[in-house]
Design a protein around this nucleic acid. Sequence first.
RNA 1: GCUCUUGUAGUUCAAUGGAUAGAACAGCUCCGUCCUAAGGAGUAGAUGCAGGUUCGAUUCCUGCCAAGGGCACCA
Length: 561
Amino acid sequence: MVRDNIEAAIKEALASLGALHVPFVVERPAEMEHGDYATNAALAAAKILKKNPRDVAEQLKEKLVSQLPSTEDSVGVSAQQVSLSAIKKIEVAGVGFINFTLAGTVVKKIVHEAHEAEWGSNILYKGKTVMVEYTDPNPFKEFHIGHLMSNAIGESIARVLEFSGANVIRANYQGDVGLHVAKAIWGKQQKPDASWGEAYAYGSAEYEANKEEIDAINKKVYEKDPSVIALYDEGRKHSLETFEKIYKTLGTKFDTYFFESETWQKGLALVQTNVGKVFEESDGAVIYRGEQDGLHTRVFVNKAGLPTYEAKDLGLLMLKKEIGTIDLSITITASEQQEYLKVVLAAAKHIAEVADIAQKTKHITHGMMRFAEGKMSSRTGNVITGESLLNDLQAEAKEKMQGRELEDSEKTAEHIAVGGIKYSVLKQASGKDIVFDPAKSLSLEGDSGPYVQYALVRARAVLRKASEAEAVDAESAEPSPLERLLVHFPEVVERAASELEPHYVVTYITELAADFNSWYASERFIIDGKVSKHTVAAVKAVENTLARGLQVLGIPAPEEM
RNA sequence: GCUCUUGUAGUUCAAUGGAUAGAACAGCUCCGUCCUAAGGAGUAGAUGCAGGUUCGAUUCCUGCCAAGGGCACCA
């Protein structure tokens, strides 16, 4: 990437000025007049050297210019090997910024080769194996909106990491034992004709009145007692199959599944062998005193001797470790589990078997999805499940498309619904609550998944028409703002990968889509059956970049809409 | 009470210690025979409060205020 080359050159120039280890950034300036890249290196160095920033900037510029070849032969440079010779202009500006403007030929070259080149340096995570655990729904319960959020974030992080060269293992951890299972089974026993969802709802509602009976079932499930096993297997299978359909719609394919029915024994064993060392007994339970790490105390094994979720999570760490060498393990959950997981990981770091994997674990959280008031129709009463949300949005999308002749309007509506939800979830930095407005998420006016999808569809339509037109050579003009924006895509994804924040990609492709739409509205591409090769190349680059951007976000790209 | 997270236009979100805080929606003005107008152009509008560090703070530190999460056998 050009950016990397500039960064390396600046490092070299700084070193020759005697300023080592200066923290600086090379970024896209807010203003196009400031060039294609800008750095605060001189400002940062001036601080360390205790000199005037402008003077340092001038010196730095001199060094950089002296590194430029005297002949401006940038035409023979390929997109991957753009060197400093690709730079047309280096300027000192403002309080001491150094701005770089790329040679027009180089911008065009990068842009026009983009559709062929394997983009991205693929260096950041090259050779690294990263496990991403996300979605985590519980069999016997509904797939709710939180799972949708976890899925959207996890899938995009997985893809962004893959873009950066990582080998990603997608993992899903599901609670197939526990009280919720017992409630569902009890409900089904009482009402054999009810659906599993209704059975669970009934069991939940009746739990207090039938506590003993349901608790007994819970124990039987753990023990795989023959009296419940048939019903258990049926319900579990039904849930998992339902989930699998949703994953398919959402575009996720998991590599591995973990279940609580596999983690609890391992976790329990880990806790038991460390009582007196890591854990202590208190009031009949086994606890970890998180206060030693500035956290709080949590119960790992309850009075009855059963493992809590904490112990099960230790068992999960064991299972993850058994998969093989993992360089980074990412877990995505709702933010309400943030403090909880800190305690579990703190305890795990004291246990030899799982200390290493605990050390490598990063927790990414998402807030709750709240709904803009009064704008959500729900067919299932008060509860909006992930499924019903998808279905409602799909129906709404289909309605919006009425009058259009599409090959597969059902599929297109699905793509729009999924894109609308995912975009809404991914457009902001993770951790905060999301206010979801269904109408806005499907609207083509303004920031939305469909808006970006639509820009892509338009670009594709132009390319189709252009392929029927006569391609003519055009005078090579200076690159347009749109083309200059296209150059930055790889570094945006790389930043998303290094910070595990997909929203950078969302912001970027939205800007790109808007710029393209603006261009589209102001320009006629095909005139009298003729189209400039130049235009075709630029549109192709837009199409390619939008498609890739959506792809790393896990947002489907419809062919038409 | 302790602790974590978050406070940016009317609303929903951006901003890597830097250049004039950037978008979208809603508002107000405009653009319809043409490659998908499900679009586009323009306009107005914001950093919770008070200190501190810095050449420079939405960003870092301290205090306050406000919202949300967590704090013993649920997940």
